[in-house]
Design a protein around this nucleic acid. Structure first.
Lengths: 236, 236
DNA sequence: CCTGGTGTTTGCGATAGCGCAAAACCGGCC
DNA sequence: GGCCGGTTTTGCGCTATCGCAAACACCAGG
C-alpha cells in the first residue's frame, strides 16, 4: 500500500493544530482504499468499524426509511470526513455511503479513535467543529423545508452543491460529479418529476443547462435571486 | 450567589469521566441565573459570549427566517447543554433561546471553553457525542419531513416530547411544559391550523386530551400506531 | 449499428394541506 | 365579576405538488 504524503492532508481542518510529525504517526494508522463509481463504502445499519477521510472523488450519504424511501443526507467532498459513527457514539452507521465517482479514501479503524483524541486533543476539537457545522446545515435545511416552496429549495440545493463541488467554467459552474434529478429530489424533499419540471423551466430561461446526471449553472446569480424570492411570483 | 452542589450535576453526560474534584473546579467557573417564564436567554444573531447548562425548567431554541417565519429547533430539558456556539466554532448564536417555564441555568463564559477542553478532554468527547446525537435527530427530522404526512410527523413530535419531558399520569403522559399548537406546527413544518385539526380529531378518538398550551397523551400506544402508519388510510 | 436499460420529460387528474377569515374559548388581571 | 388578549377551533376555497402513466432521449455494450 502506497504511503500517504502528509503534505496532501496537512492543511485539512481535521488536522489543524496537529504537528507534522504527529500527523505522520496518525496517518500510519490508516490504510487507503479505492472505490469505483457506484460502489457502497458502508451500509446503513452495519456495525461501524471504521471512519473515513475522502481524498478523491465524491461520496453520497443517504438514509433509507423502513418503507424504502431515501433521502440524501449530504454529499462528501474531498478533504471531508465521513462515517464518524464511533466519534458520536453510534454503534451502527446511520446512513449508507456510496461512491458516486471513483473515489479514494483513508480508513482508520474505530479502535484508533480513542487513542487519537487522547493523544491529539485538537482532533476532537476540530471534529466537534465540523460536526457542529453539519448540525447547523441540517437546521438550515429543516428551516427551508418548513418555510420555502420546492423551487426555492432546489435553488438553494444547487447553489450549495456548486459552492462545495462546483467546477468553474468559462460561463457558469458545473457540478463536478454525476447527479440525477432523483438525487436532487432526495435532497430537497420532493419528487424527481417536480425537479425535472423545475429544471426544464430554468433551462428555457437560460439559467441552467443540464442533461443526464449533469447540471451546469449558467446564471448562478439568477438562481440566487430565485432562491431568495419571498414566495409571491412578482411577474408584473 | 448560591454554590452549585456537584452531586446535582455529576451524573450528567457532559461530565462523564470527570473526577469529582475537577468537577468542583469546573463549576467554580460558572455562575447560575434564573430566567422567568417567557424571557429570552439569548437572541439569534447575538455575539455568542457564553454557553449554558439547564438545571431546571424548559428552554425552546428557535430559528427565525429573514421574513419572520420561525421553526423550533428543539426543546432543551434539564441536564442538557445549549448555546454551544463557541464549541462548534460559530461567532453568533444561530437561534434564539427562550425560557418557556421558569428556568435555572449554569452559565460559563466562552473564554472558559478552550481551557476546559484542554484540561478535561473528556468534556470535548462528551460534547461531541451530544452534538452528534443532535445531528442524528436532525437527520431523522429531515427524513420525516421528506417522507411522511403531517399527521404522522405530529405524532412523532409528540412522542419525542413525551419521552424527553413527559410526566407520567395515572392514565397517560402529560407534556411537562406549556406548548401551543403553533409550537408544534413549528416543530413539524406545518401550520397551527392543521395541528389544531389533527389534535381535535385525536381528542374525539380519545387519543389525547388537550387545552390551552397543554397536551396529555391518553393513549400513547395509539399514537405510536398512527406515527408508524405507512400512508394508506386502511379504513376498509 | 442495433438494442436494452437507465434517466428524463411531460400530461393529467387527485388531494393534502395551506391561507384567510371569523367565531368561540379560556384564563388571568384589574 | 367583568374585561382583554392570546389561543384554539372551524369553515371554505385554492393551489402547489404529488402520483401515475406513457413517451422519450441517451449511453453503453454487443
Amino acid at each position: 500500500m502506497a504511503k500517504v504524503d502528509t503534505s496532501l492532508v496537512a492543511h485539512l481542518p481535521l488536522f489543524e493544530g496537529v504537528r507534522p510529525d504527529d500527523l505522520e504517526e496518525i496517518l500510519r494508522e490508516a490504510r487507503s482504499a479505492r472505490y469505483p463509481r457506484n460502489t457502497a463504502i458502508f451500509e446503513q445499519g452495519a456495525d461501524a468499524q471504521s471512519f473515513f477521510l475522502l481524498l478523491h472523488g465524491h461520496v453520497r450519504a443517504a438514509k433509507t426509511t423502513p418503507t424504502g424511501e431515501q433521502i440524501v443526507v449530504r454529499y462528501v467532498a474531498p478533504g471531508e470526513t465521513f462515517g464518524l459513527a464511533m466519534a458520536i457514539g453510534a454503534p451502527h452507521y446511520p446512513a449508507t455511503a456510496l461512491a458516486v465517482d471513483d473515489s479514494v479514501v483513508l480508513i482508520w479503524p474505530n479502535s484508533a479513535w480513542p487513542r487519537l483524541i487522547d493523544r491529539f486533543p485538537a482532533i476532537a476539537a476540530n471534529t466537534l467543529q465540523t460536526v457542529g457545522a453539519r448540525l447547523q446545515e441540517s437546521h438550515t435545511r429543516i428551516l427551508e423545508m418548513s418555510t420555502q416552496q420546492v423551487e426555492q429549495r432546489v435553488a438553494h440545493a444547487l447553489l450549495r452543491l456548486a459552492k462545495q463541488s462546483g467546477k468553474k467554467l468559462d460561463h457558469g459552474i458545473e457540478i463536478d460529479f454525476p447527479i440525477s434529478r432523483q438525487d436532487i429530489a432526495q435532497m430537497t424533499g420532493t419528487t424527481l418529476h417536480t425537479v425535472s419540471r423545475i429544471l426544464s423551466g430554468w433551462e428555457s430561461q437560460g439559467l441552467v443547462e443540464s442533461g443526464r446526471q449533469r447540471i451546469i449553472l449558467r446564471d448562478p446569480h439568477g438562481i440566487v435571486v430565485l432562491a431568495e424570492r419571498t414566495a409571491d411570483g412578482g411577474s408584473a
